[in-house]
Amino acid sequence: MGELRIAGHLIWAKIRSEAQYPASLIAHLIAQVLVLGLDLLAIWALFLRVHALGGWTRGQVLGLYAISGTAFGIGDLFVSAVERTAEHVRLGTFDRFLLRPAGTLIQLLANEFELRRLGRLIQPVVVLVLVLTSVAVDWTPAHIALCAAMIVGATTMYSAIWVSTAALAFWIPSTQEFANAFTYGGQYASQYPISIMGEWMRRILLTAIPLGLVAYVPGIELFGAANPMGIARWMSFVAPFAGVPVALAAGLLWRAGTRHYRSTGS
């Protein structure tokens, strides 16, 4: 608990320092909203030509986009700073985190916190509110819980992917773009029904990098959407928890990485 309080203080300090340059912050937030606007533009353009993708209507795809985007946005705000690991390893500044009496991961995340990353969260949240009020969702208590579980589950999953790909930097430097393929690539893939992907990619998204389990599979139940892959209904309720084992694995990988770290010796 003490660690979280310290992290909170650090984050608050970072927020205040960023607020010193409000124009830069606002420009960045606007830019982020516009960048994400491209994803929406693509969905809009494609649905001018077809009525459904993988059997999902535009509203349902937008729902998937918004839930996955919101989760990615939360992960981006609080966890994506773990990307900076590579630089700390390269410069040897990771030493500092090891010297202090607190967890390395939480220190790194608090130290590199940037309010400007909020930009990735704003737009999906707006879309989420618009979609969930316009798309036909049967708002039973079970579905409300499922919707929340999807967001929490997907956030956990994205965070775990961020941490595990960043932890690779302890062994191999300059893997940033490799990590991007899983984080940003994963986010891109989970905006669309995975049934439109090839067999091999679907399998990856349901097992090795199970982003399909936290977005598409529960989405079938939540939106009452087409289920061409014939996934069992109970799976929709269990799948959001897939983030938990992945997060545990990411934690172990991070710990192994910090033990492997040998500083730069200079």
Binding site: L53, F178, N180, Y192, I196, G198, M201
Partner: peptide, 18 residues
């Protein structure tokens, strides 16, 4: 190159579905 390829696969499947 790996990242560009992964994005290429995803985009290709989306476009092919259309």
């Amino acid at each position: 190159a790996f990242a560009n390829t992964v994005f290429g696969f995803i985009k290709a499947y989306i476009v092919l579905a259309v």
